[in-house]
Simulated assay, not measured.
Amino acid sequence: MVVSGCSGGGKSTLLAELQRRGYRVIEEAGRRLIQAGGATPWDDLPGFLQQAMALAEQDYHTHVGTAGWVFCDRSLVDLASALQHLTAAPCLAPLATAFRYHLQVFMVPPWPAIYCQDDQRRHELSTAIGEYQRLLRDYPALGYQVQLLPRLDVPARADFLLDALSRDAGELTQ
């Protein structure tokens, strides 16, 4: 299950809440790559995206078919969308069949009141909003159904997501 959307919109905080409630969470590949001393988006954006895609692909193979909900902080789609935007190479099309996540994707919208930069998020909010707008286009283009997450406190946001999934319990998990 992918949780994506605007950088700095509360994805990681929401996923930490879901993990605290006992759900499996895959941390964002890009942040893990930076924390491990790998490529960075500010030094080599194409190289960073390619390395993060390789890590996200490993995550996918590790967890595909796992029973129960597995929540991903972003996915291969996010990374391929960014790489395609940057290079114009057709990065998204292969993901339409090769790496399928749960049909429903949860998106956090821009939330200027909580947006902040840090050592791993150096870009401006305007850049994050552009990324969000691309993802709103690219996920549906690959056949995903996007569910926007409301701006609520963390426990209420987690409840909203889990309630939406319980209504959708007949779908395949991942």
Results as ranks from 00 to 15, higher is better:
residue 161 L to I: 07
residue 143 G to F: 08
residue 116 C to T: 08
residue 164 A to L: 01
residue 90 P to C: 04
residue 143 G to H: 09
residue 156 A to D: 02
residue 133 Q to H: 06
residue 161 L to F: 08
residue 110 P to W: 06
residue 98 A to I: 07
residue 58 Q to D: 15
residue 77 V to T: 14
residue 57 E to P: 10
residue 163 D to A: 07
residue 109 P to D: 14
residue 51 Q to W: 00
residue 51 Q to F: 00
residue 54 A to D: 12
residue 101 Y to K: 12
residue 95 L to V: 15
residue 80 A to K: 06
residue 63 H to T: 15
residue 58 Q to T: 15
residue 63 H to Q: 14
residue 49 L to Y: 03
residue 106 F to N: 09
residue 111 W to S: 12
residue 127 T to P: 01
residue 111 W to T: 14
residue 128 A to M: 05
residue 152 L to H: 10
residue 102 H to A: 15
residue 86 L to E: 10
residue 142 L to N: 14
residue 55 L to A: 05
residue 120 Q to L: 10
residue 57 E to M: 11
residue 158 A to C: 04
residue 105 V to D: 05
residue 118 D to H: 02
residue 152 L to I: 11
residue 139 Y to N: 10
residue 86 L to W: 02
residue 154 V to E: 04
residue 141 A to Y: 07
residue 128 A to I: 07
residue 144 Y to V: 12
residue 154 V to I: 15
residue 124 E to R: 09
residue 153 D to L: 02
residue 137 R to F: 02
residue 114 I to W: 01
residue 152 L to W: 06
residue 155 P to K: 01
residue 52 A to L: 02
residue 92 L to E: 08
residue 102 H to N: 09
residue 54 A to N: 07
residue 72 C to M: 13
residue 153 D to A: 06
residue 72 C to H: 12
residue 153 D to E: 11
residue 80 A to F: 05
residue 100 R to E: 07
residue 142 L to R: 13
residue 81 S to H: 02
residue 118 D to C: 03
residue 65 G to K: 03
residue 110 P to D: 06
residue 133 Q to S: 03
residue 100 R to V: 11
residue 153 D to R: 03
residue 137 R to N: 08
residue 129 I to Q: 08
residue 82 A to Q: 09
